[in-house]
C-alpha cells in the first residue's frame, strides 16, 4: 500500500505555498532572463551592444535600457510583448524578493504583532514597487 497524504492532510498553509512559490518564481526568473537574452540577440546584440546592455535588457526589457546602444532602431522593441515580459518579470521578482525579506524577518521576529507589522509593510512595499514599475514600463 502506497502511503500518500492528500493536500488537505498536510498543512497546506501560507508558509508552505510561499515556500513553493519561491522555488517556482526563481525558475520563472531564469525563463524571463533567457527570453530577454534571446530578444537581445535577435535585436543584434552581437555587433551592437556591450554585455552590460545585454544584461540590462535581459533583466528588464524596457526599450530605454538599450537606447544608448548601436541598435539602429529601438522603436519596434517598445511593443506590448516586451512590456508584458518586463511587467511579468517585475511582479514575479518583487514578490520573490519581498517575500524573501519577510522570511528573514520571521527568523528574528516571533511575536504576532511584530510579524504583522512586517507583513503590512511588505505588502505596502510590494504594491508600491509594482505600481511605480508598471507605470515606468508602460509609459517609457
Amino acid at each position: 500500500m502506497k502511503r500518500t497524504l492528500p493536500i488537505s492532510k498536510r498543512g497546506l498553509n501560507f508558509e508552505t505555498i510561499m515556500w513553493f512559490f519561491t522555488r517556482l518564481s526563481a525558475l520563472a526568473m531564469y525563463g524571463f532572463i533567457i527570453i530577454g537574452m534571446i530578444g537581445a540577440l535577435v535585436m543584434g546584440a552581437r555587433m551592437n551592444m556591450n554585455f552590460a546592455d545585454v544584461m540590462r535588457w535581459a533583466f528588464m526589457s524596457n526599450s530605454t535600457h538599450v537606447q544608448s546602444t548601436n541598435i539602429p532602431d529601438i522603436a519596434p522593441w517598445a511593443n506590448a510583448f516586451w512590456r508584458l515580459v518586463a511587467s511579468g518579470f517585475l511582479l514575479v521578482a518583487s514578490a520573490h524578493g519581498v517575500h524573501g525579506l519577510v522570511v528573514i524577518a520571521d527568523d528574528y521576529l516571533v511575536k504576532p504583532l511584530q510579524r504583522n507589522v512586517v507583513r503590512l509593510l511588505s505588502i505596502v512595499m510590494l504594491v508600491s514597487i509594482g505600481l511605480i514599475g508598471l507605470y515606468v514600463i508602460w509609459t517609457a
Binding site: R10, L12, N13, D106
Partner: peptide, 9 residues
Amino acid sequence: LSETSGIAR
C-alpha cells in the same frame, strides 16, 4: 512542521 516556526525557517 508547516507552521511559521517550522520547516520554513
